[in-house]
Structures are given as structure tokens and as C-alpha cells.
Amino acid sequence: MGLVNPVGNILQVTSKSFSRYTIKENQKELKCLAQNLMKRYNPKSEIITYKDFFNSDRKEDIYFGNTEGIDSLKGENITVIGTPHLNPIAYLLISVALGYRMGLEESRMEYIPVERNGLRFYFTTYSNDSLLKEVQFYLVESQLLQAIGRARVNRFPAKVLILSNLPVVGAEYISFSQKELIELMK
């Protein structure tokens, strides 16, 4: 059947991860960066992110983990901020529940080159274990795609801006140099 050509647009900036940890470490700079990117590429958009981030700028109480079945944003412009990682123990527990046995070495995460969905990129994941990596990617991608899907870009002319270092298939990627990113964080 192939890929569907969406009616709307999906733009993505992969220069920063916007993970919970990164946001906690650099909250002021990353909030400023996100606001400047939204102002430039998707002004007046609804935000979907972590439950306790950007609370004052959100109209709806929609956040990672609370997006499924929500249809109130169809046709609306959305900005999705974050790479919704789970606690690494969750990936390990799910793998064990699937019957997988592992040692300490397999459960170490590293920032490594990854090839997924026909794309090559760097990501913090399990270097030696394909099952753990698949479990992690499935859970992170599911949350990200649920958030993106709220705009219903396949049927409506909405715009979705994604601020996450996990590339999404079908997105138009926007790149910045380190110098440009630093300027956008001011």
C-alpha cells in the first residue's frame, strides 16, 4: 500500500533530545529554545509534552501517557516537545516478562549510531541487545506517534512541529548549527 501523503505538514528539529533529564538540567535554556522554535515554525500551536513541563502554555491537559483516544485536537496545529523515554527498568522488566534472560552487560545504555526505519542517527539505547533496543524504541515511538497523531495530519491541513531527537518517518527535518542553537536559546 505504501506511505500515505498527509494533508498537513510534519516538521522536526532533532538537534536536542528534550528528554526529561535534559530538560531538568537545562530547563530555562530549553524552554526558551522551544518557545523560539514554536514562534518561528508553529506559532499559536497546542503543546503536547511531559505532564509537568510547559503547564502554563497548554490549553488542554494532554501529555505523554495521556494522548490515546483524544480527538479534540484534530485539525489543530500541535507542537510535540520531548523524547518520551521510560525508566530503563521498565524496558528490562518488559523484556523479562517476554521471557528474555540477560546479564548486566546487556542492560547498559550508550549514545550510539542507530539505523531504524531507513534512517541513521545517534540515540541513547542498548548497544549489545536487539530485543531491549526494540522494546525501548517501540515504547518511545508509540508515545511520540500518539502525540503527533492528535492533529490528524493525514486528513486535516494541520501543522505538527516535533522537538525530539528520535526521527519520525515522514517528517521534514530542520537542522541547526551549534551556533544557531545557542542563539535560539537566548
Rank of each mutant, 00 (worst) to 15 (best):
K179F: 09
L30N: 05
L166K: 02
P43D: 14
I78A: 04
E106N: 12
V140I: 15
N87Y: 13
L73K: 05
A34I: 06
N5P: 02
I47G: 04
L93Y: 07
S56V: 02
D52Q: 08
N117T: 00
Y173T: 01
M185L: 01
K24L: 13
L144C: 05
R116K: 15
I48E: 06
S19N: 11
I148G: 03
R152W: 07
V168N: 07
I162P: 01
T67N: 09
Y21D: 13
N55K: 14
P113T: 02
E141L: 11
A34L: 12
I23M: 12
I148K: 02
A171N: 07
S107R: 14
T22D: 15
L161D: 05
Q178P: 01
I174A: 13
L33Q: 08
N66F: 02
A90N: 10
K51P: 01
G118P: 09
L144S: 04
K51T: 00
T124Y: 09
P88N: 05
G99M: 09
K44T: 02
S95I: 06
L181T: 09
I47F: 03
R108M: 08
Y126T: 01
S72G: 01
G99S: 11
I162C: 12
K74N: 11
E60M: 13
Q35Y: 11
K51D: 05
D52H: 13
G170V: 07
Q35C: 04
D61L: 09
I10D: 00
E29L: 11
F123K: 01
V160C: 10
D52P: 02
H85L: 07
L104F: 08
T49V: 11
P113D: 13
L139A: 06
S56M: 07
Q35R: 15
F123H: 11
Y21E: 15
Q136F: 01
G75F: 08
R150K: 13
L86K: 12
M102S: 14
K51Y: 12
M185H: 03
T14A: 05
Q35L: 11
E134T: 13
G170F: 10
M185A: 06
D71M: 11
K31L: 12
G65T: 07
K31E: 15
F123W: 06
S56Y: 09
S130T: 10
N5I: 03
I78V: 15
A97P: 00
N77Q: 04
P6G: 04
L92D: 03
S175V: 04
R150H: 06
F123R: 01
S127N: 13
I174G: 10
F156I: 00
L166S: 03
L92I: 15
A147C: 06
D129C: 05
Y173A: 04
I174S: 12
Y21K: 15
L37C: 08
S45Y: 10
Q12N: 09
T125V: 09
V96S: 14
M102N: 11
A151F: 05
M109V: 05
M102C: 13
I94L: 15
S19A: 13
M38F: 03
K186A: 09
G75A: 06
A151K: 02
L131H: 12
M102E: 10
F137H: 15
I47L: 04
E180K: 13
E29A: 12
N154T: 04
G69P: 05
K39H: 14
F156C: 06
I148H: 02
